[in-house]
Design a protein around this nucleic acid. Sequence first.
DNA 1: TATTGTTATACTCTATAACTATA
DNA 2: TATAGTTATAGAGTATAACAATA
Lengths: 149, 149
Amino acid sequence: MTEAAKRPTHRTDPLDSLLGYHLRRLSVVVMTDLTESLAPLQLKPAEASILLVIASNPGTTQSEVGRVLGIFRANMAPLIAALLKRGLIERKAVDGRSQALRLSSAGAAVCRRAQNVVREHEERLFGRLTREASATMVAQIRSLWQAKH
Amino acid sequence: MTEAAKRPTHRTDPLDSLLGYHLRRLSVVVMTDLTESLAPLQLKPAEASILLVIASNPGTTQSEVGRVLGIFRANMAPLIAALLKRGLIERKAVDGRSQALRLSSAGAAVCRRAQNVVREHEERLFGRLTREASATMVAQIRSLWQAKH
DNA sequence: TATTGTTATACTCTATAACTATA
DNA sequence: TATAGTTATAGAGTATAACAATA
């Protein structure tokens, strides 16, 4: 158990009733677990999510992947560069500025392993929720997210 | 609307069914809104949460605040130093190593304003959920979080 | 030995500005 | 004018190691 995760002794937490606070702290737990789970593949969560999106949308561009995942163009560049350098993805010019992205065969293999890691990660963290409870949470989060735009 | 928030065109998102993915993205929206809402008080979310915990637990120590909020000792130091420098909190030695923390009168005033900001922030983001739906989500998140320890 | 507080350091993600090249 | 991609830079949060002083 990490230091910061130790249980408080007898202090009250005035934030305990706030949904945003709980969302935030849970998301930290989720990200930490995912980061550790993907470490054997030498993938960061952002890189793994990019591989999954390319696998589902072969020929897409890096700007489009960024829009799907909510990652800025400026932050996509080094992520894509790292995946290219490792030979996990390939680029082919569509026109003078856009380039189609596809997984290499090595990338497809890593992507399959990443999919398994993600599935196990979700099962480990959320498996105790009923399928219905999980779906309800996703639906509620989606509606909240959409209300913001 | 920021660049990264633009809606995707027609690409599929293979992560769309994953609860952890939605939790993470919602938590980003929550943190961004809270950060912007607290900016007029010149408080970061972490600083505001520290003020709230001290207000509820006068005389607590900085290590204890860190344990309540899940913040490492090493990261508490500069946060507490900043609040001290601004005169929002006061320190008094308990023994040779621990020091009791309390809000100054200026700190109490800022803390009250922060409480209002947080209330409005939660209402703005989650007000569309019924009281019951919100309580259910908090309860589910709490149970998930506890399962991790 | 364990705890408090501190410093230094590193990593991930998010965000903006500025630039080149192309549509 | 708008878009694609890049670089540089900054900020917030999380995390580990190492140290001094104290319990």
